[in-house]
């Protein structure tokens, strides 16, 4: 019982500082965003300028965010979904329309990333960062020319490959090698993709969507298909020595765009719009690029970036391979899960 008494005492001491938080009363913004995607300095600058306190909650997949958002338990003012989720949320009427008048910095955006198919006219979303999915090759270990998905899975690099742990991605690559549009997902096209994926899986060493770069750096894999941001970080880590080369697959690459949106019924819409306008400022947007070298859609911010950042071929790939975006596929997602679980569980 003395054990319990001591425990209680310790607890009381430790809980003391907590009481100070309850007393605070000021305007807040509840931000629900990808983990490690909104750098702390960006938030601090916002609070310093506006006095608005930002409560941050994070998620690590679009669907995990949807689960908590749509269950309605918590109230968020700003969310950060990817393009196909924006499309789905607009369809379900779950987003508030943006008041463009309060977003004067919208003009800083590159026209290539505005008015896209998932949100025509950007009525509901403002792009945050964009990126693509491509091939990374450790040129010290692999001397062959690698240009597409088929080269990665030629059978030569058995158990040296890392791929994103994302079933839809893997299926889309198989579709691309077959010349089928990546958004054309049906029982029929999946049946065609199945043998291709089946041939690929035994060659893969690891599935990782979170930090495949670590596996490259620690020598566990030599080639892989990963987010362009991961490739950009590898390029930066090796100081552009060319050890890790980024290739957009010739079969057809695709890109993604993460955006900021205000969910229906948000309590602090004005603060949310202030935040959106805040991140559209060139110097703030450049801060984000500093931490996450994805493709910055902000033209004015790009002008502030150092030459070597702009020269990072994974962030700003040269050339003009056609880049698709994912469309919302609704219930076919479960067909993909079924096929992939079947192939992976043996």
């Amino acid at each position: 019982m003395k054990f319990i008494r001591v425990l209680l005492l310790l607890l009381a001491v430790l809980a003391l500082p907590l009481t100070t938080f309850a007393a605070e009363k000021r305007e807040v913004l509840n931000l629900f965003c990808w983990s490690e995607y909104v750098p702390q300095p960006v938030i601090e600058a916002f609070t310093k300028e506006t006095g608005i306190k930002v409560n941050v909650e994070n998620y690590d997949s679009n669907e995990k965010m949807l689960a908590k958002l749509l269950a309605g338990g918590a109230k968020y003012d700003l969310i950060q979904p990817s393009e196909y989720v924006v499309e789905s949320l607009i369809k379900q009427g779950q987003l508030e329309e943006l008041n463009r008048a309060s977003l004067p910095n919208f003009k800083n955006l590159d026209a290539k990333f505005t008015d896209m198919a998932h949100d025509p006219g950007n009525k509901f979303s403002v792009p945050w960062m964009a990126g693509s999915v491509g091939i990374v090759v450790n040129t010290e270990k692999i001397k062959d020319e690698v240009t597409g998905y088929a080269d990665v899975f030629s059978g030569k690099y058995r158990r040296r490959i890392v791929v994103l742990d994302d079933n839809r991605e893997i299926v889309s690559w198989a579709l691309a090698t077959l010349g089928i549009p990546i958004n054309d997902i049906s029982k029929d096209t999946l049946a065609k993709a199945r043998p291709v994926v089946k041939g690929w899986l035994p060659q893969i060493k690891a599935f990782d969507s979170d930090s495949p770069k670590t596996k490259f750096l620690k020598g566990d894999v030599d080639i892989g298909i990963v987010w362009s941001g991961e490739a950009a970080l590898l390029w930066r880590e090796t100081k552009g020595s060319g050890k890790f080369r980024f290739v957009l697959p010739k079969e057809g690459a695709h890109m993604f765009v993460d955006s900021l949106c205000i969910p229906k019924g948000a309590a602090h819409r004005e603060a949310a719009e202030k935040f959106i306008n805040h991140i559209l400022k060139p110097e703030i947007s450049a801060l984000i690029s500093k931490d996450f070298p994805y493709t910055n859609p902000n033209t004015a911010a790009r002008a502030l970036l150092a030459a070597e950042e702009l020269g990072n071929p994974a962030s700003y790939p040269p050339g003009a391979t056609k880049l698709d975006i994912f469309k919302d596929i609704g219930k076919t997602a479960r067909e993909i899960d079924r096929m992939m679980t079947d192939l992976r569980s043996r």
């Binding site: 938080f21 509840n30 983990s35 490690e36 409560n55 941050v56 909650e57 994070n58 998620y59 690590d60 995990k64 689960a67 908590k68 338990g73 918590a74 979170d210 930090s211």
Partner: peptide, 21 residues
């Protein structure tokens, strides 16, 4: 993750968010 609010985020959750990448 499912039951916490923004002000009650725990250390493992904060670590999880930071360590993922």
């Amino acid at each position: 993750y499912f039951v916490c609010g923004p002000e009650s985020k725990t250390l493992p959750l904060e670590i999880y968010d930071n360590v993922r990448k």
